[in-house]
Design a protein around this nucleic acid. Structure first.
Lengths: 340, 340
DNA sequence: TTGTACGCGTTATCAC
DNA sequence: GTGATAACGCGTACAA
């Protein structure tokens, strides 16, 4: 194991360059020699040294992926899909986690570049001036920075509008929005969609309906507490991630609040357990696999040498209706929404 | 960017070797020269070439992680913890996913070794003869193969015994066990613990109570269907993963089965949503972070050159009781378990 | 068709 | 304290 071209050359009684040519399928090599060389290479368990190849400038077949978090179900799915796609194309994936800190994004990118990756896929942190170090091709996924690079992500705006629209359709007017960091472009886009849905329904949104802070269960709980302390309290909530739903459901259970009869809920996020809570959560599912696929495709094009202008791809999701939406409890006009 | 030692040497009017020494903190370098070199390096944005270093034999500061799956919440958590630990120590993580296929494990390992990782952490697939290719230090995590290498994992046996013990304590006798692939060492160990708990309670387990196939929601549903078709049907289930619980809950809901009054449930797995289902799921939580920490520590020791005999570390988890256990519905002796 | 020679960037060794 | 040189493994232009 760990044998080199030279050992094979020695074994076969030829020159190193001949071995290299034979193994790399170059044209002008005697078929007899090639066979011999192939066999000895096999026998010796030859593996080309990635380091030497990289040094020689032939690339590393390695791609860096920079993302905020891997515990988060959404990103776990994302990295999983990206990994699959890349592995299928013969690339290894090396990771960097930012925890949403610009500093860690920078060091992560530098580490990846220094380690010689051929390309990078990144979910950017919300830093002001993204200090893009020079390096290999880079594409952005999900969130968007100010960099002028290839980008693929979800139609967050439309998603929020769809979700809030479901609530409006069920007769709600007092609809709250719980979200994470307002610095994330995704958060802002979703908020925008929520506002648009309300505007289209002729509802003037109370600014206190909007609770933004962090994509964590804790904030989900806290935001619900704040909303329920309001008078009048909202009759429905649009939550911007499954983590928020987790906290929200915990808090609801703690105070004996019944869903959907006392509070309707719609949420972003594609999580298996949305189907087994009580009630099942109506959600807007984003096609993670598709976005991963496109991100890899965009990167592959760049790595193949494309110098086209930066591309932008927007992908739409779809609503999955379960049982967390009902008519508002004291609603004056009983709408066509599903009763409990 | 991408400047080399030579460029710095040229710029400073010194030799390459001096630059190398200066930058690597070697002792015999004039402080004045060192300062100058450091500055120019900074100015030119110098990053040492990992490829060249690897070629030179100084390692890559890169570690490979081989695991079955990243969608799986348990492994998503695991890889996340491992990644954190390694990044903290200055290592990059490059991934390989096996999907529980021996072939992919082999190719993954080979890819990682070829790419020059300094060490490998692997959750082995259940292959008979693990075709360990020679390579860098390797430690195994969670599952255990027949390789004689460092290993760290959970006390699955004790976990299952604890969980089943909870059911026994609530008055159950007809206790089923739903698990995944019987080829996994973890599955077998858990089954063993389950049997031990029953034996300790003087219960003769009906072999049909044991349903093993796959760690998937589908199998969770199917297994529950099979169990409920039995006469007498079991009054309690011990599920071996959160994926199984997902399917089990779905099926229970589909047929209007009420937990825990009609069926008690305990499960392995550490998942946030165990707290928000109805009822909350009583579980045996395994200390993923601790195992990740130890795995990294073991590997670090090896990478530092340790040649000690293979180490084995067993880590215990703890039960987290929620609301999914009650007395059996028609139980003759009403035990002290929590009533609904 | 095959061999020779060189360079990629780094570090260790040896000579000055 | 510093400079020159060799070596790591590979690919390729050029010579034979």
């Amino acid at each position: 194991m760990g044998s080199t071209l030279r050992q094979i050359a020695l074994e076969c009684g030829v020159a190193v360059s001949t071995v290299s040519r034979a193994l790399n399928g170059h044209p002008h090599v005697n078929e007899e020699t090639r066979r011999l060389i192939r066999e000895t290479a096999e026998r010796l368990g030859y593996r080309p040294s990635a380091a030497a190849r990289a040094l020689r400038g032939s690339g590393t077949r390695t791609v860096g992926v920079v993302l905020p978090d891997m515990m988060n179900a959404f990103y776990a799915r994302t990295i999983s899909m990206v990994q699959d796609q890349l592995e299928e194309r013969g690339h290894s994936v090396v990771m960097a986690v930012t925890n949403n800190e610009g500093r860690r994004e920078r060091t992560g990118l530098e580490r990846l570049i220094a380690s010689g990756v051929d390309g990078i896929i990144v979910v950017p942190t919300p830093t002001r001036r993204p200090p893009t170090p020079e390096g290999p091709p880079l594409v952005e996924m999900n969130r968007r920075s100010s960099r002028r690079v290839d980008w693929v992500g979800y139609d967050e705006d439309e998603g929020a509008r769809t979700l809030a629209g479901l609530l409006v359709g069920a007769g709600h007017h007092d609809i709250a929005f719980i979200g994470g960091q307002p610095s994330f472009s995704t958060t802002r886009r979703r908020l925008e969609g929520y506002r648009r849905a309300l505007a289209e329904a002729g509802v003037e949104p109370d600014p206190r309906w909007v609770q933004l802070r962090a994509y964590s269960p804790d904030w989900g709980s806290e935001a619900l507490r704040r909303l329920l302390a309001l008078r009048p309290a909202p009759t429905a909530v649009c939550a911007s991630s499954s983590e928020l739903v987790l906290g929200l459901l915990t808090e609801a259970r703690r105070r004996g609040l019944r869903l959907p009869s006392e509070l309707s809920l719609v949420a972003f996020g594609k999580t298996d357990w949305y189907a087994v809570t009580d009630p099942g959560i109506t959600t807007y599912e984003q096609p993670i696999e598709q976005v991963a696929h496109i991100a890899v495709q965009l990167l592959a094009d760049r790595m193949a040498g494309s110098t086209a202008d930066p591309t932008t791809v927007l992908v739409e999701g779809r609503a999955v209706e379960r049982d967390s939406v009902a008519a508002p409890p004291t609603g004056p006009e009983p709408p066509c929404g599903t009763a409990i």
